[in-house]
Design a protein around this nucleic acid. Structure first.
Lengths: 261, 261
DNA sequence: CGAAACATTGATAAACATCAACACTGGTGG
DNA sequence: CCACCAGTGTTGATGTTTATCAATGTTTCG
């Protein structure tokens, strides 16, 4: 269904916006930083909206997703404090995915100056952003956080793809939990106590599972003593065990009764 | 199938930049275009190799793939003549995936000038690129073919992901064939006669299937009169039928006997 | 020619989705 | 405050898709 040639709005139409751009007046400069607070289920933006400056998540968690013609929803990722939102979505100045707050959250839209600084600060030695030679092109541009942000996204999607193919339900969930825990601890949070503000439905969508299957996987981890589960609050009781399952790939099914300790 | 060949570069623009070319601290400048011919199974590069300049496919077909620690291989895409290879792989100057020729093929490595031209050509009315104000930053950079190349890759992976989740074997294969046919015809080839130089194993890997399942899907299409199949040469006999199956999503299984006409 | 890689077909079973029933939660209004 | 309701999460039973195992036919290439 994805390969749809020319149906509706498939997020694959990037070609249209490449060579001949309407002479967009350069993005409105944004001089004062704008903060914005969102409630649960409130959208930061929808798909197809213009977006001149990206956001940085200050608090809370967001999910980004695409809705296809048939109504099915593809969850692309979750965004925690510190993450940039909108870089990969704003090519052509129009977002291709929607972003929604999962609980009360706040963002800060980057000012033009901050944006410029991000663009030009990639190179280690900070040259002034006021010249743009061909030489730099293959250097600072490639190393700019913008490129890296998109590059990381490609890597993440590649891994997600690989995981969906080779890995069982349980190792997918284990991987996600470990990654999430890692992200939390990088931000100064706890490494073993997770708060998952997304609904089971969203998490299942992200992992490519039915909600029932996801629920069963949680229950299995609970029964095996790996996790303490309380809907959106998870405690990791056996980190090594989880890591073993995450690494196990396709071998670890819901039915194989091989108790890893 | 990755980088769209949307931009046929025009070498004229390179002159704008030449004045500042010398200050290249990094990548060796590449002044003369290098062509290279590869045989079947020969690698253009492996993962982890340094790569200063991307390639353009001139003839033949390539596959890009990643090999994971456990030895499993993830096919990321196939690259047809006109495609750029290495843009998304060369961030940080080191490739993250390997690229292999599937049959006799040739590439042309972009020169520094061509690369620069690609980078700066995004904006329509190009003012001299020798200043890089914050305003331009959010304009020409975002519209550069480099960003677009990576952006397209993200969209392609997103679609692939969505397809793997929601779509049955048959609709995945149908989508792929249609997309491939479309790509061939864009390049001036036939729209209904496909040559698939990749092995079943690679195609199955790309689509996330077992080779047996893929083979069965081909057989089913043959039995239904949709395709004439001769291993690597495919003829589309019923385009509308294929499109119907591609659009059908998860409903189209190998077992459901609903003959679409 | 012969061996190895590849492709196809069949039988079986595993993993997961789906359907269905039920429990829990949180918010609303009586 | 309680009853109610809708949304959500869990658990069980069943069905289907597709991976896996196995066998055979086919192509490729030394």
């Amino acid at each position: 269904m994805a390969g749809q040639p020319q149906a509706h709005y498939t997020p694959g139409q990037a070609q249209h916006l490449s060579p001949t751009l309407p002479s967009l007046p350069v993005a409105a400069t944004l001089t004062s930083a704008k903060n914005r607070i969102l409630r649960r289920k409130e959208h930061l933006f929808h798909a197809g909206e213009p977006l001149s400056h990206p956001y940085r998540v200050m608090a809370g968690v967001f999910k980004s997703y695409v809705v296809y013609e048939d109504g099915s929803e593809q969850v692309l990722g979750f965004h925690l404090p510190g993450d940039l939102i909108g870089f990969d979505a704003m090519v052509g100045r129009t977002t291709f995915c929607a972003v929604m707050a999962l609980d009360t959250a706040s963002v800060r839209q980057l000012t033009t100056a901050e944006l410029a600084s991000l663009y030009c600060k990639g190179g280690e030695s900070e040259q002034s952003p006021s010249h743009c030679s061909a030489a730099e092109v293959s250097d600072s541009h490639l190393h700019s956080p913008v490129i890296h942000s998109m590059y990381d996204e490609i890597l993440r999607l590649t891994r997600l793809l690989h995981m969906e193919r080779g890995c069982s339900t349980t190792s997918r969930l284990a991987s996600f939990l470990l990654e999430y825990a890692e992200g939390q601890s990088r931000r100064g949070g706890s490494r073993l106590t997770l708060h998952l503000p997304m609904k089971r439905r969203d998490l299942a969508g992200y992992l490519g599972l039915a909600t029932e299957t996801l629920s069963r996987a949680f229950s299995q981890f609970r029964d095996q003593g790996l996790l303490a589960v309380n809907t959106s609050d998870i405690e990791i009781l056996n980190l090594a065990g989880l890591e073993a399952i995450a690494a196990m790939g396709p071998a670890a099914s819901l039915h194989s009764q091989r108790n890893s300790e």
